[in-house]
Design a protein around this nucleic acid. Structure first.
Lengths: 175, 175
DNA sequence: AGCGAGTAAGACCGGTCTGTCTGCACCTTG
DNA sequence: CAAGGTGCAGACAGACCGGTCTTACTCGCT
C-alpha cells in the first residue's frame, strides 16, 4: 500500500492523510504503529531493499547467469527489462537521497541501502576473482545509477550502453 | 538570490514567502514579474544552464584541455574539483527531474537542459572525430550523472572512476 | 453480563504552502 | 498641486501538512 505510493510518486508527494484513507485505518492506529511519517518511510526503504534490490534485481540477475561474471552483466539485462516497464519509477534510494539531501536521516538511510547494493556487486566481483573488488563495485555502481537517470530521461537503450561499459570494466579488473 | 537557494536546497524546499522576504520585494511585485512559482523555476533552470553547464563545466573543461579529446576528459577533472567543494549540491536538473517526475513541465524542462549538456559532449566528440558521436555522448552522459550521484553519497573519488571508464569509451569510439 | 483494549472516523491544532488583495508611502509627469 | 503608476508590507484565502485527541463502537476475556 504505502510501498506502491512511495515508490511511484515519491515520499514528499504522499501525505499521511492519503495513506490513512487508502489503507482504511484510523490515524491514531497509524501513529500507534509508527511514531512519525519518517519512521514509516524507513520501513518502506527496508522493504524496498528486500523486494527491489534483493529479489527483483540481484536475485533475478543471479538466475539469469551461471558464472559470477555473467551474473554481474545480467544486472543490466534486468535493468533493460525494468526500464521498459510502464510503471518504471526510478530508484527510490536515489530519489530520496537527492530529495532530502545526504544530511537528512532518510538521506543517510538511503546512502546505507545504496551501499548494500554495492555490497552485492562487490561480493560477485570477489567470487569472479576480480582485482580490487571495492573499486570495481564503486565504478560499477556509477554505471547502474547513471543508467537509471538516463532511463528516467527516456533513453530506453541506457541499460545496453551501461552494460557495454561494464564489460570493459570487467576486462580491466581481471588478474 | 533565488539561484543560490534553489540550487542548494532544492525547488520544493524553498517557498515563495522566503524568496520574497530575502529579496526585499513585495509579493504582488513578484507575481507581476512571474505568473507562478514554476515560471520562476523555469527562469532558474535557464540561468543554471548558463552559469553551471556552459560556464562552470563545459567552459572550464575547454580551458583545461587543448584537443577535443583532452577537453572531454577534463570534464571529469572539473567534476573532481566540484565534488570536493563544501557547497556541492548535486545537479539541479537531475534533482528536479527525479523530484517532479518526467511528466511534470519542470521535469520536461530538466530533460531538455540535460539534453543540452549531452549536446556539448556530442559536439566535442564530433570535433574529435569519434565514431557514432550521439551514442558516445549518451554513454558519456551516463558516466557524468552516475558520478554525480556517487559524489552525493560521499565518494570523493567518483570523478576519477568515471574518468577512467570515459577513457575506455573514447578508445572504443576511435575510427 | 460487564469490563477494558483496540480501532474507525474525524475534529482539531499549529504550521506550511501558493496565490490574491488591500492599504499606504513614494515618485514621476502634467 | 493633482493624478496616476509603482512598490513595499502584510493581511487574507483556501488548501494541505504532520501530528494529537475525542467520540463512538466492536470485540474478546473473565
Amino acid at each position: 500500500m504505502a510501498y506502491e505510493l512511495f515508490s511511484r510518486r515519491g515520499v514528499r508527494d504522499v501525505g499521511v492523510n492519503e495513506l490513512i484513507e487508502r489503507s482504511g485505518v484510523a490515524k491514531a492506529t497509524f501513529y500507534r504503529h509508527f511514531p512519525s511519517k519518517d519512521a514509516l518511510v524507513l520501513a518502506f526503504l527496508e522493504q524496498r531493499d528486500q523486494v527491489w534490490t534483493v529479489d527483483a534485481i540481484v536475485g533475478q540477475a543471479k538466475l539469469r547467469g551461471t558464472t559470477p561474471t555473467e551474473q554481474l552483466l545480467a544486472i543490466f539485462d534486468v535493468f533493460g527489462d525494468w526500464f521498459l516497464r510502464d510503471d518504471f519509477e526510478a530508484c527510490s534510494f536515489i530519489n530520496i537521497l537527492l530529495e532530502m539531501g545526504p544530511a537528512h536521516p532518510l538521506g543517510q538511510a538511503s546512502i546505507d541501502y545504496l551501499a548494500r547494493i554495492r555490497g552485492h556487486v562487490q561480493a560477485l566481483a570477489e567470487q569472479a576473482g576480480l582485482d580490487r573488488p571495492e573499486d570495481f563495485a564503486r565504478s560499477w555502481h556509477i554505471l547502474m545509477k547513471g543508467s537509471i537517470v538516463s532511463a528516467t530521461e527516456g533513453d530506453t537503450q541506457a541499460a545496453k550502453r551501461a552494460q557495454q561499459m561494464a564489460s570493459w570494466l570487467i576486462e580491466h579488473h581481471r588478474s
